[in-house]
Structure formats: C-alpha cells, structure tokens
C-alpha cells in the first residue's frame, strides 16, 4: 500500500515537472492565461462597485463584505482549477474522439491519470485575486480572526476545492453516456458565479439548488459568512466538509461506472 502511494507520488512528480518545462517554454501563453482569468474576476468586482453606486447595501451586506465573499470564493475555485483542469477535456474531447483509450490501457488509477496529465497555471490568476481580496478585507478589519477560524479556513478551502472537483467530475462523466458533456459542465460550473452573492436574495427553490443540489453555496457564500459574522456557527464548515465527502463519493462512483460503459470512438 505504502509502496503504491509512493509510486503514485513519484509519477505525479515526474509528470508535473515535465509540465513545468512545457510552461517555461511558453511564458507569453502563460501570462495571457493568467491575465484572462484575472480580468474575469476584476470585472466581477467592477460589477459590484457599479451596483453599489445605486444601493447602500444588498439585503444587509455591505460592499466590503461582498468583496470578501467574492475573494474567498476564488481560493477553492483556484485550487481545484490548478490541479484538476484536465477533467474538462474528458467532457469536451477525450471521450468523443476516443483518446480516453490511453488511460484505460495503463495499469494505474484512471482518475489519477486524468488529473496528473495537466496543471493549469491560469488558475494562479484566480488564486492571486482571491488572496489580494482576502488580504484587503483583513486590512479593513471586517474579518474575524482567531485560532479556530484560521484552522477552519484551511479546512474550508480544501473541502471547497473538493466540492468543485466533484461537481466537475460528475458532469464530465456524463460524457460516457452523451459523448460530449461540455455544455452541462460549463453551465454547472458557471453556476458557481451566482453563489458568490448572498443566497438569501434568491427564491427558495433556487436557494435550495445552489445549496444542496449543486452545492456551490457551501464553497463560497456560506463559509465566507462564518468568517464575517460572529453569530454564524462553525457547523457550516462541518456541513461543507460532509458535503465534500458525499459529493466526491457520488461523482467518483459515476465516473467509475462511466469508464465501464465507455464506448471509445469509431462507431
């Protein structure tokens, strides 16, 4: 078992170091990717500024608080994006054109092979802006800082990243049945954008969906509010953690089943 884990680690290191070499050969591309994601996030902040020109607060939330929520949301998103971006390829390309074959032919865990094939440096754009916004919010003194919360911050970010990965994996796995699941994944993934705002602004049904069905609320808004408001219970992080585990199990089971019904290409 230990030997097996060691082997996976060694392989991951080899693959990723190869990948870095490729990135270093194309610095311009790397910077452009970074810029793309950075800009996307900046636009989101600009949107908030423009809206708050018109209103003093949004259902009791101030602009500063919303900016923290926004920034906090970028960190788990960025981590997942950095590590598991190749899942998108499963949804769009690998299944329909049969390139998924190669994972099936190697004596290693398939999911591992999928994610080990690529690191997405563009994600650093998201991580960067997330970190900047969180630091600004800390400077403004609107975030509660204590030992427990620092620990839970780490737990929450990791659980959040796992929720992202699970949602991506689940929707990408649909490709095994419908050949191209990119559109589904795209839409599901984009729903994360809406959980960057306080969920109480939505109608009940929608709030339910982004909290429990595609649980992005537990990645962004809900844990972020725990760091902003004394009265929010730490249980919210516990639930986030449980959701992460449950969703991961579901997504991984669907993925595994998908590889069994995989039809390859050429028919």
């Amino acid at each position: 078992m230990v030997k097996k884990v060691k082997r996976y680690f060694r392989l991951y290191k080899v693959l990723i170091s190869q990948f870095f070499k490729v990135i270093l050969q194309s610095k311009v591309d790397f910077l452009m990717g970074l810029l793309g994601f950075f800009l996307t996030q900046v636009m989101g902040i600009a949107f908030l500024y423009l809206v708050f020109e018109q209103i003093p607060s949004l259902q009791g939330w101030t602009l500063d608080q919303l900016i923290f929520i926004y920034g906090f949301a970028q960190i788990p998103r960025g981590i997942d994006h950095l590590l598991t971006d190749n899942i998108w390829m499963v949804a769009w390309r690998l299944v329909i054109n049969g390139d998924f074959d190669r994972y099936m032919l190697r004596p290693m865990n398939i999911f591992f092979q999928v994610i080990a094939e690529k690191l997405q440096p563009d994600a650093l754009g998201e991580l960067l802006i997330g970190a900047i916004l969180v630091v600004i919010s800390l400077g403004k003194g609107i975030v509660i800082v204590d030992a427990g919360r620092i620990l839970l911050f780490v737990v929450s970010v990791l659980a959040g990243a796992l929720i992202y990965t699970s949602i991506k994996l689940f929707f990408a796995s649909l490709a095994f049945w419908v050949k191209i699941s990119g559109p589904f994944l795209q839409v599901a993934y984009e729903m994360a954008n809406f959980a960057k705002y306080p969920t109480e602004i939505y109608a009940k049904a929608i709030r339910f969906i982004i909290t429990w069905v595609i649980p992005f609320a537990f990645v962004a808004y809900l844990p972020a509010s725990f760091f902003l408001k004394q009265e929010v219970s730490a249980a919210v992080i516990g639930i986030e953690y449980m959701i992460a585990v449950v969703f991961w199990c579901i997504a991984y089971a669907v993925f595994n089943h998908g590889t069994k019904v995989y039809e390859s290409a050429g028919n």
Partner: peptide
C-alpha cells in the same frame, strides 16, 4: 493515434512510462 505525450521529448515519455 499516439499514446505518447505530444509536447514532451520522447525520452521523457519513456521516463514516465517506466514509472507507470
């Protein structure tokens, strides 16, 4: 279709396969 790593030198593909 190839099963090698498109962007990597062949030698690196072999290094990875050795590990796999």
């Amino acid at each position: 279709r190839t099963q090698l790593w498109w962007d990597l030198p062949l030698s690196e593909s072999f290094t990875i396969l050795k590990e796999i």
